[in-house]
Design a binder for these strands. Structure first.
Length: 387
DNA sequence: TATCACTTAAACAAAA
DNA sequence: CTTTTGTTTAAGTGAT
């Protein structure tokens, strides 16, 4: 049954060391708790980017971070980026907006063009789960039918437009299996149409956000020990509650700033999308199965293997910690930087500077001050924790 | 080497 | 009847 010949065709195209990351995360970045941007179908973004340069990956990546995070990664605040936002264009077609991207993008722009094409070819550094999450979060109603999810992905990651259609299957597969996504009947809203709407289970949102951040830029969380805030919209309360309740999460109540970046102070907290063990989706049959262990109740047939589909809920309470820790590194974002196999831990001194800069801007943007110290500590503690 | 997270493929059923 | 959507199962890859 499964693929026998080394995965899908497109997979072959990607070179394990230099592919995905370059893609366009840019656009996506704005995800988080997106406000009710009304963009469900009208995506917001216009992107720009393409980062990924081939040559200067590190710098490039940093630039990417800088720009992206700064301009778009407003968790929760992201909102609709006017198409004018240069940085929000993940798509391959570097739309006209590449104007001088604001801030510091000088370097970026200089390279960006060269990389545009890359983003078209490279795979997004996000897992399907995150892509779906982003799509949903950016929708006006925070729920989308699969078709629109496809559309969002295509729009933001042109890579898929050329990829074999299998990715759609993967998307559906994820929707079905990930506990993070819930199917809701489409009653209001789009009256007709096939299928149901899919939304993110609020319980898992914080985790998704964390995961997203980690994938974006693993070191990003280190920049802020203190999470900024969730979006200013209604979800804020929920998100805060969730985050606060989660171990290590502290959300600044005030952060209603749209552009704040939400970061977990706890390194462990990452991307265990399934934070609190809970049963998910009542509406879903076995989907949740992701973890037969945890929600054994749901369906147990997905045995261990299936459980690996991601997002498990913790079987053991402490699982969250254990898993999240390494989950983070699972899909290294820009990973596979030539620099080293473990981008996250080994930060070169030069990079450090870059990081600091980026961090500074980021923090500034997020309205967070003086977290560098904290972040440093966080980094250290992270390391310690990992041990 | 085992395990985990994630991806991809495919079969199938149900709905539109 | 065809296409889309949703669910499941199986297997491969890569990282730890």
């Amino acid at each position: 049954m499964g693929p026998i010949i080394g995965m899908s065709p497109d997979k072959k195209t990607e070179i394990p060391g230099m592919q995905e990351e370059r893609t366009g995360l840019r656009g996506v970045c704005g995800v988080g708790t997106l406000p009710e941007a009304e963009c469900a179908s009208g995506p917001l973004a216009t992107n720009v980017d393409r980062n990924g340069g081939t040559e200067d990956e590190e710098l490039t990546n940093l630039n990417w971070l800088h720009e992206n995070l700064l301009q778009n990664f407003t968790l929760g605040g992201l909102e609709v980026q006017p198409s004018g936002s240069p940085l929000f264009d993940i798509e391959g077609d570097y739309r006209s907006n590449q104007g001088p991207s604001s801030s510091s993008s000088s370097s970026y722009s200089s390279h960006s063009k060269g990389r545009e094409r890359d983003s078209l070819k490279s795979k997004p550094p996000f897992s399907f789960s995150l892509l779906i999450y982003m799509a949903i979060e950016q929708s006006a109603n925070k729920s989308l039918p699969v078709k629109e999810i496809y559309g969002w992905i295509l729009k933001h990651f042109p890579y898929f437009s050329n990829a074999p259609t299998g990715w759609k299957n993967s998307v559906r597969h994820n929707l079905s299996l990930n506990k993070c996504f819930r199917k809701v009947e489409r009653s209001l809203g789009k009256a007709s149409g096939k299928g149901s709407l899919w939304c993110v289970d609020p319980k898992y949102r914080p985790n998704l956000i964390q995961a997203l951040k980690k994938q974006h830029f693993p070191a990003a969380h280190a920049f802020c020990t203190r999470p900024a805030s969730p979006p200013s919209d209604i979800d804020a309360a929920t998100a805060m509650m969730l985050l606060n309740s989660a171990p290590g999460h502290h959300v600044d109540p005030d952060l209603s700033r749209p552009d704040s970046v939400l970061v977990s102070s706890d390194p462990k907290q990452d991307h265990n999308y399934s934070s609190v063990a809970l049963q998910r989706c009542p509406s879903r049959s076995s989907s949740s199965s992701l973890s037969s262990l945890d929600e054994g109740g749901c369906d147990g047939r997905q045995s261990r293997r299936a459980s690996s589909e991601g997002f498990h809920s913790d079987e053991e309470s402490d699982l969250w910690d254990k898993r999240s820790v390494h989950q983070t590194s699972r899909r290294p974002p820009f990973n596979k930087w030539p620099v080293s196999k473990r981008p996250r831990r080994e930060v070169k001194p030069e990079l450090d500077e870059e990081l600091k800069e980026a961090a500074g801007s980021l923090l500034h943007l997020a309205g967070i001050r003086s977290c560098m110290e904290g972040s440093k500590r966080t980094v250290k503690s992270t390391k310690l924790n990992r041990k």
